[in-house]
């Protein structure tokens, strides 16, 4: 049990980590403490809503509506504070705990805010704030699922190697290929050269997210170069080049998959953060509007 296996935040905090918490997912933090908090919050909200009998149809303007609205707004501000909190390690509580609370209380917000609305929706800033909140939660939920599922697939894909290791292997292959392909005819040599020169790793957001490499020159070379086509004295060389290209393609595929996993783990945040700020503005407008035209 070494300190290296612990989360960096915890290590920086300099606290002793109780056994059993190492390798523990943020979802299961302290025996699902915040899941329980979230469930209690939802149950209390649902019970209050069920017992509430306002003079009008349920809406945000009843006493329960104001109460749930206040809880919801406070939760949103606190949840957004997580963005600040995660940048400053080693303060109030463990980051893992904050993340756990962020996830579960963020999900509980679905119930609190929906019952705050009393299921009254319209084409207005109020429903826009709700829709933005749901979009933020949905993107966060996507992130949560990805964080829970992808790292294992990522490790399995790379077999313990890093992208840097894989790139070094490709570079080594390229060096070999420069020699092995010298004897090929010009057409085939051109294909090999193109494969080596193509920027094949990463690229646009879509390229990284989809994990595809359209017009992959390595794949093209592998398809176009055939040992059988080569003149007899070149056959052995062509065969070797094909072997190298095949290996190159395999590494490229592994890297593409890895980048895809990494992109999946990152992309939701590109929605989560801007939508959160849009929500902050819409929420402010919502609260001001409600009290402005009281």
């Amino acid at each position: 049990m070494s300190a290296a296996t612990a989360k960096p935040g915890a290590a920086a905090a300099g606290k002793r980590i109780p056994p059993g918490e190492i390798h523990q997912s943020f979802l299961a933090y302290r025996g699902f403490r915040f899941l329980k908090w979230g469930i209690w919050l939802c149950l209390a909200t649902i019970l209050a809503y069920a017992l509430h009998r306002p003079l009008t149809a349920p809406n945000g303007g009843t006493w329960l509506g104001y109460t749930l609205g206040t809880i919801g707004a406070a939760l949103i501000l606190w949840l957004m504070w997580f963005g600040m909190r995660k940048r400053s390690y080693g303060r109030i509580g463990r980051l893992q705990g904050w993340l756990s609370a962020h996830v579960y209380l963020g999900l509980a917000l679905i119930v609190v805010a929906t019952l705050h609305t009393g299921f009254e929706f319209g084409l207005n800033i109020h429903t826009l704030a709700y829709a933005l909140m749901m979009a933020v939660i949905a993107s966060g939920a996507f992130g949560m699922i990805v964080y829970a599922a992808v790292p294992e697939q990522m490790t399995r894909n790379r077999h313990g190697a890093t992208v840097s290791d894989l790139m070094a292997k490709i570079a080594a292959l390229d060096g070999d290929m420069r020699q092995a392909a010298l004897g090929l005819d010009d057409r085939q040599a051109g294909l090999v050269l193109a494969a080596m020169n193509q920027v094949a790793i990463g690229g646009s957001a879509w390229r990284q997210l989809s994990g595809t490499r359209p017009n992959c020159a390595t794949r093209l070379a592998l398809r176009r170069i055939t040992a059988a086509d080569a003149v007899p004295e070149q056959r052995a060389q062509a065969q070797r080049v094909l072997g190298l290209l095949g290996e190159r393609l395999e590494y490229l595929d592994v890297i593409s998959r890895d980048l895809r996993y990494k992109a999946l783990m990152d992309i939701w945040l590109y929605l989560h953060v801007p939508l959160s700020f849009a929500l902050l503005a819409a929420l402010t407008a919502h609260v001001v509007a409600v009290f402005f035209y009281f």
């Binding site: 920027v199 990463g202 690229g203 957001a205 992109a263 990152d266």
Partner: peptide
């Protein structure tokens, strides 16, 4: 080759237009 590969690669969404 490795330096070239590193230089021409674009890894991570933070290096895209997003």
């Amino acid at each position: 080759d490795l330096a070239r590969l590193r230089k021409t690669s674009r890894i991570g969404l933070e290096r895209t237009r997003l």
